[in-house]
Computed example of a mutant assay.
Amino acid sequence: MAQLNLDVSDTEALLAGAQKLLDSCREELAKRVIGQREMIDGLLMALIARGHILLEGVPGLAKTLAVKSLAEITGLDFKRIQFTPDLLPADVTGTLVWEQATGKFSVRRGPVFANVILADEINRAPAKVQSALLEAMEEHQVTIGEESYPLPDPFFVLATQNPIEHEGTYTLPEAELDRFLLKLLVRYPSPEEELRILNPHNTYVPALKPILGPSQLESLRTAAEAIRIDDKIGEYIVSVVSATRPSATKPSNPRSRGGSRPAEGAGSGRAGREGLYRYISFGASPRASIALYRCCRILALFDGRLFVTPEDVKTAALPVLRHRIVLSYEAEADGLDPDAVVSRILAFVPVP
Rank of each mutant, 00 (worst) to 15 (best):
residue 223 A to I: 07
residue 283 G to Q: 10
residue 246 P to C: 14
residue 97 V to A: 14
residue 82 Q to T: 08
residue 140 H to V: 13
residue 226 A to Y: 05
residue 6 L to N: 00
residue 145 G to T: 14
residue 117 I to K: 00
residue 121 E to M: 05
residue 3 Q to W: 10
residue 346 L to S: 13
residue 216 Q to P: 01
residue 172 L to I: 07
residue 54 L to A: 00
residue 8 V to C: 05
residue 314 K to D: 03
residue 348 F to V: 10
residue 90 A to K: 14
residue 66 A to I: 01
residue 193 E to A: 02
residue 310 P to E: 11
residue 125 A to H: 01
residue 85 P to Y: 10
residue 350 P to Y: 13
residue 321 L to M: 13
residue 186 V to R: 01
residue 206 P to T: 08
residue 243 A to E: 12
residue 18 A to K: 01
residue 322 R to I: 10
residue 169 T to I: 03
residue 252 S to I: 11
residue 134 L to G: 11
residue 45 M to W: 09
residue 63 K to V: 02
residue 148 S to T: 15
residue 9 S to A: 04
residue 277 Y to A: 11
residue 49 A to C: 15
residue 308 V to H: 07
residue 46 A to W: 05
residue 240 V to P: 08
residue 96 L to W: 09
residue 148 S to G: 11
residue 66 A to S: 15
residue 175 A to H: 11
residue 236 Y to Q: 08
residue 31 K to R: 15
residue 190 S to D: 03
residue 244 T to D: 09
residue 186 V to H: 01
residue 229 I to F: 04
residue 257 R to C: 12
residue 143 T to P: 14
residue 69 S to I: 08
residue 250 K to D: 03
residue 83 F to K: 05
residue 316 A to V: 06
residue 187 R to S: 09
residue 120 D to W: 11
residue 276 L to R: 06
residue 117 I to S: 03
residue 3 Q to I: 13
residue 187 R to T: 06
residue 242 S to R: 15
residue 56 E to S: 02
residue 212 L to T: 02
residue 304 G to I: 00
residue 181 L to E: 06
residue 41 D to M: 03
residue 13 A to I: 00
residue 285 S to N: 11
residue 94 G to C: 12
residue 152 P to G: 09
residue 131 S to E: 15
residue 265 G to N: 01
residue 209 K to F: 02
residue 170 Y to Q: 11
residue 95 T to A: 15
residue 53 I to N: 05
residue 159 A to D: 01
residue 195 L to N: 06
residue 230 D to N: 09
residue 193 E to P: 02
residue 285 S to H: 07
residue 96 L to A: 10
residue 45 M to F: 07
residue 193 E to G: 01
residue 104 K to E: 15
residue 158 L to R: 00
residue 215 S to I: 04
residue 177 L to K: 00
residue 275 G to R: 11
residue 197 I to P: 05
residue 343 S to Q: 15
residue 124 R to I: 06
residue 260 S to Q: 10
residue 171 T to Q: 14
residue 13 A to K: 03
residue 261 R to M: 12
residue 230 D to H: 07
residue 306 L to H: 04
residue 335 G to H: 02
residue 46 A to V: 04
residue 35 G to D: 03
residue 188 Y to G: 08
residue 277 Y to L: 11
residue 30 A to P: 06
residue 107 V to C: 11
residue 105 F to G: 12
residue 9 S to R: 07
residue 59 P to Y: 09
